[in-house]
Write a protein that binds this DNA or RNA. Sequence first.
DNA 1: CTGTGCGATGTTCACGCTCACAAACCGACA
DNA 2: TGTCGGTTTGTGAGCGTGAACATCGCACAG
Lengths: 341, 341
Amino acid sequence: MPASDGDRSRPRLTVMRDVAKLAGVSHQTVSRVLNNHPNVRQETRLRVLEAMQSLNYRRNLAARTLVTRQSDTLGIIGFETTLFGPASMLYAIESAARDAGYMVSIASVRDLERRHVTEAIDRLTQHAVDGVIAIAPKLTVTNALAQAPPSLCCVAVGGAGEAPTVGIDNAAGARLATQHLLDLGHTTVHHVAGPADWPEAQERVEGWRQTLYAAGAVVPPAEPGWWDAESGYARGRALAADPRVTAIFCANDRIALGVLRALHEAGRRVPEDVSIIGYDDMPDAGYFLPPLTTIHQDFSELGRRALTLLLEHMSGASTTHRVLVTPNLMARASTAPPPPR
Amino acid sequence: MPASDGDRSRPRLTVMRDVAKLAGVSHQTVSRVLNNHPNVRQETRLRVLEAMQSLNYRRNLAARTLVTRQSDTLGIIGFETTLFGPASMLYAIESAARDAGYMVSIASVRDLERRHVTEAIDRLTQHAVDGVIAIAPKLTVTNALAQAPPSLCCVAVGGAGEAPTVGIDNAAGARLATQHLLDLGHTTVHHVAGPADWPEAQERVEGWRQTLYAAGAVVPPAEPGWWDAESGYARGRALAADPRVTAIFCANDRIALGVLRALHEAGRRVPEDVSIIGYDDMPDAGYFLPPLTTIHQDFSELGRRALTLLLEHMSGASTTHRVLVTPNLMARASTAPPPPR
DNA sequence: CTGTGCGATGTTCACGCTCACAAACCGACA
DNA sequence: TGTCGGTTTGTGAGCGTGAACATCGCACAG
């Protein structure tokens, strides 16, 4: 003989109706309590809350999403998230999102071909995210973002382009770095740049160039490279061989590490012979040989700002297009006045 | 006068019924096509697919989740994901998950108090994830995991504990490192350990100790510290002051960086006077001064294994409890035979 | 010619929730 | 006492999908 029906294969989880029955109200009242609707008598509310607690009730978000069409979930499009910068942004965004009551889904992109970005947006859309933040250091991304369905709010972090953007003020950081070296007495500053197709790298080049120009200093050529120590080492060797080089601004700390090694091998001391300044203030930059002067960026602030901007756009309350976070200088031992000539 | 009803506030998105109508079938047939049900005539299938394409139909996953109780989403509990190791694991897991058709939601944990971990599990549960992978370098996490609702499959990455675990074989890595130094002729090897409450750090201590013991070498004391260069620097100064120290195994590369600096300041050359070996092979370890010999870990492999294990457990096909990935040695310039006495 | 079995398709219901609307209730005031 | 404005609560419908069951057509054996 069959047992009482209803307990088939599925475990039969606690739903609103159960809470309602226990509290002696309708399911709608439970819903009201859950959504903090004002028109619920205090006593009723308490009874419902108690019932929820004793049944260990959790509302089914899928059902909620089905009817409200919003998921309280944000999508993040990630790129190169094993690097310190992007990883920090990711973390910062996630933290801010959580504090704002959002869940975060992540869609990493192996390379920045537009196709892959579009596909990532697609996956996120299908999972009904309410908005998207893209860690988007290249133009392809921000532009692909602009082509997302108009109902989907997107914000780009880092880089530049058509979509609303939040970023570190790279030009300002580069100016800070360059000016610091000029102020120490160097007649000019060399630059080891990042990749040419990354806006962040270009903005740093720009800030560096402007500062030199404004100071009436010679602007040496700056050939681009990749973001790693290997690239810094390769170009550092060339710079080390040139005795006129007394100050080098590196597009990031990893590049600086490579340059440091190249100078060391060439027998040029830092900072006595050559001053080096990096960018990022990655962990342990203070323990390089010598400790690296660098530009510090507040990634948590960046994440918070990105989230705020996204929420503003989602609620239609803002049309701000670009938000910049100001970086600051961390002076350490790798910079000093130039050697007496 | 009111316009035709149905187009109220909400944009009225394309649903199965629309596709069905266009293809001249019932919505259920559309559902069958979508789920690759075998019993659909080829011709019908094509007609439906065509209709889906022309309407740009995407199925509503919330509705699907509501009825199937599964979301094709995995949860990741992240800790310290701005560090290289965890960030790499995160990325690797996400990649593997995507290839397996899963979306990934992330819940970062600021600190590893059990309370916070439980809370993270809670958030993920509420969002109906099908399973959880925790980046869990401390016991609190794996144990909290074991307390998750039994219906929720959890796998821990890194560390050890009650839940099924995937990790790098830290003891093996430590043996590799220690043996490498012994083989070079050092009479014993000192160790700068990681935090005492991190299993990964303890396993490294254990592997180091075993190797020394097996070789009949003196086992020096190894006081624990944190994972960063500052900690390495502090303990490096003490070691640098002891002329008997000729070989140091550091629990990770960042610690090694700090030790390197301490030795440098004390005027002890690496590797001529002292050999140093790290752990992690973080990016640019090959550009330290000197390039760091270290233990390399394959994080992608780790991520893939973690996902595989989780899926196996979810399908009930496996009871494997612990999976280990073998690390290998990256010999670079920071290790050499001891100085002649 | 009828019955049987199977593949292809349609019908109906349930998933758990929110929304719109209706009903009940309460005090106030003419 | 009746009506009115407001608050509190209940009822029913519908969100888009998948599962169970019903139906239909057809081939083939008896």
